[in-house]
Amino acid sequence: MKRQVFGNDSWLQAAAFYLRYQVFVLEQGISPELEFDELDWRKPNYFVIFDGQIPIATIRYQRDSKRADWIRPDRFCVAKPYRKQGIGQQLLVDYEAKAQKEGYLGSVLSAETSAQGFYEKLGYQPFGEPFYEDDILCITMEKRFKAR
């Protein structure tokens, strides 16, 4: 049975770290020194989806450092066996709903160019030039939330 948990408890952060290590470090070859950054040690909130006791999707929840009224989803990943099932889409939609409820006006993120279509389907628009982040080609994308 799948369940979604939000918060910053140590056990939840450990589950997010476990999944991020699997996806970003082992699968994509990003060095752990780059994947786990200073923001992780400030005890940010995470959304984590579990299948039983196994973390299968996660995203870090934080305010954008340049625009305080925007949210910056990052460290977003879904375990390989669970991809293409709508889990990532639902997680991002839930993330945005929480942000809107808390008064944020929009969302800005760095997307791997291979995932650009995924974000565009959810209303994100690319801006700026592509750039390399952790040796992966990325593009900045943003989405302004609709007024309620």
Rank of each mutant, 00 (worst) to 15 (best):
K43S: 02
V48C: 13
I49D: 01
F50L: 01
F50E: 00
D51C: 06
I54Q: 15
P55T: 05
P55K: 07
I56Y: 11
A57H: 00
I59N: 08
Y61P: 00
Q62E: 14
D64R: 01
S65C: 12
S65I: 14
K66Q: 10
R67V: 14
R67E: 15
R67K: 13
A68T: 05
D69K: 07
I71A: 00
I71T: 07
R75K: 11
V78F: 02
A79F: 06
Y82T: 04
Y82R: 07
G86I: 07
I87W: 02
I87P: 02
Q89D: 05
Q89Y: 05
Q90P: 05
Q90R: 11
L91P: 04
L92R: 10
V93R: 06
D94K: 10
E96R: 00
A97V: 15
Y104H: 02
Y104G: 00
L105D: 04
V108L: 14
V108D: 10
S110R: 11
S110Y: 06
T113G: 02
S114Q: 14
S114K: 12
A115D: 10
A115N: 13
G117P: 02
Y124E: 07
Y124C: 01
Y124D: 03
F127D: 04
G128N: 15
E129S: 12
E129C: 08
F131Y: 14
Y132C: 02
D134E: 12
D135M: 01
D135F: 03
